[in-house]
Write a protein that binds this DNA or RNA. Structure first.
Length: 476
DNA sequence: GTAGGGTTAG
């Protein structure tokens, strides 16, 4: 059946170039992963000792493969391998890898596994270093496990280890995120008792946490207290408090604090993040005029707005229906040279789509293309998506082709491509669908699995021979 | 460690 082979084409041939490219790479790392894995199976007692005798290259692909081999029945071994890998000098786990491990071993749902790992180290008399504990703490952090992280900290003396301030900060961050400020506060005090002084990071975490639970006065108090403890608050600490004041307190008080920062200057000088955060808060309260005042104020202070500042203001103005003012703002910041017109108008396109003024968004977008102003990835993606959802899939495809012409396709992801292809197929635009599929193949953009199913389902229903012919030619 | 509005691949 042609449909069946088409399904195979859709799912396989679009990735074909990719996989061929990686074959060599995979072949070498697969053996590494295999070596590590089989060593662990053969030496189930103190796997760490045996792992260090394995002569194999350690990289993220290899780590991933080992973890996948260990799922789901050898989770404990998998995590021990992960921790061991994190200790090797030639390799460092990225944040992505920590997330990966958490997902694979479902650490959030099975927090007791943290306990099991440490217990296994103790029973087998493994060498446990502070770094070992750090990797385990990082796993707890990724999984959002505050209690378990604290428990890891508490067990360190058993291995003759002492926690450092980085570790305390990890645990404090977790309790702050949970809103348990009593525990966070106890931990901060405990640091002082064991000669580990809370640092800027500790204080910023605490100020943010206190604001999040509505304890604004305590956050103020802490900012004052940190100075007494020899840690002079900087712009980050002030900005964290200022954000809280904006959300919980009065505008007057917020402006007063901003004023203090400007006057004190030096390390306390408000930066673009400080001002943008204030602008955002004013916009959310619906006082966009005040937000525009902050823009003038920051410029007067010598701090240039960036794309985040401008897009925040554009969003605020548009959501109040004041699109005219948004255009004026763009003219102003572009003239000042702080933000490119591409960034500004892209933000406006996005804001217009969000307030459901699609026609205007599309018109502006076309004007940008006509004038050689390059739209950013979000503006392109959002507009194509909107056109698809509104049943204007051909318009969406035309836009896609124009974006391609000016070389801005790189930022459009697989989701948008898949959506566009599905809709083109469903509405029987065979020529366009084939063009898009070819383009995806050239750019090695994978089709989402769910989209493959939808396309095949459509083909089975419609029996569109043209489309089948067009699509199946691509693979050759 | 403080602001936002989607991503890559690992």
């Amino acid at each position: 059946m042609p449909h069946f082979s088409l399904a195979r084409f859709l799912s396989l041939s679009i990735q074909a170039k990719n996989s061929r490219l990686f074959t060599v790479h995979l072949a070498t790392t697969a053996t590494s992963a295999e070596r590590f894995y089989s060593h662990m199976l053969q030496n189930p007692n103190n796997i760490e000792r045996s792992l260090s005798t394995v002569k194999a290259q350690l990289d993220s692909t290899c780590v991933n493969q080992v973890l996948n081999r260990c799922v789901p029945s050898q989770s404990l071994m998998g995590i021990r391998f992960f921790v061991w890998a994190g200790l090797q000098s030639s390799y460092r786990h990225s944040s992505f890898m920590y997330n990966n491990a958490c997902e694979l071993f479902k650490i959030k749902r099975n927090p007791s596994i943290v306990n099991d790992v440490i217990e296994a180290y103790r029973k087998e008399g493994c060498i446990v270093s502070a770094k070992t504990m750090k990797v385990i703490l990082n796993l707890c952090e990724k999984a959002g496990l505050a209690d378990e992280a604290l428990w890891v900290l508490r067990r360190m003396p058993e291995f003759s280890l002492r926690a450092d301030s980085v570790m305390y900060n990890v645990v404090i961050r977790l309790f702050c995120e949970k809103g348990n400020m009593v525990m966070a506060d106890n931990l901060m005090k405990e640091m002082g008792l064991i000669d580990l002084y809370p640092n800027m990071i500790t204080y910023v975490l605490m100020i943010k946490g206190l604001c999040n639970v509505g304890r604004l006065e305590d956050a103020y108090g802490l900012l004052m207290a940190m100075r007494r403890h020899g840690c002079t608050p900087n712009a980050v600490a002030y900005s964290a408090l200022l954000d809280g004041v904006c959300r919980l307190g009065s505008s007057e008080r917020a402006l007063e604090l901003l004023d203090d920062m400007e006057k004190v200057g030096g390390d306390c000088s408000p930066n673009v993040v400080t001002y943008t955060s204030v602008i955002q808060n004013f916009c959310e309260k619906g006082t966009t005029i005040e937000a525009l005042g902050i823009l003038d104020r920051m410029e007067a202070y010598g701090c240039a707005p960036n794309r985040v500042t401008v897009s925040t203001l554009i969003k605020g103005l548009c959501s109040e229906g004041n699109v005219e003012e948004a255009y004026k703002l763009i003219d102003k910041v572009v003239a000042a040279g702080s933000v490119s017109s591409g960034d500004c108008y892209s933000s406006l396109v996005v804001a217009l789509v969000r307030i459901k003024r699609h026609m205007e968004a599309e018109k502006l977008f076309r004007k940008m293309l006509a004038n050689g102003v390059k739209p950013d990835g979000l503006a392109c993606s959002l507009l194509i998506k909107e056109l698809c959802l509104e049943g204007q899939v051909l318009d969406g495809f035309c836009l896609y082709e124009e974006i391609e012409k000016i070389g801005c396709l790189f930022s459009i992801d697989s989701d948008i491509h898949s959506m566009l292809l599905v809709r083109l197929c469903q509405e029987n635009h065979s020529v366009e669908a084939a063009k898009l599929a070819r383009c995806m193949q050239e750019k090695r953009i994978r089709l989402k699995a769910s989209s493959v199913d939808k396309i095949v389902e459509h083909l089975n229903k419609s029996g569109d021979k043209d489309l089948v012919t067009h699509l199946s030619r691509i693979g050759r």
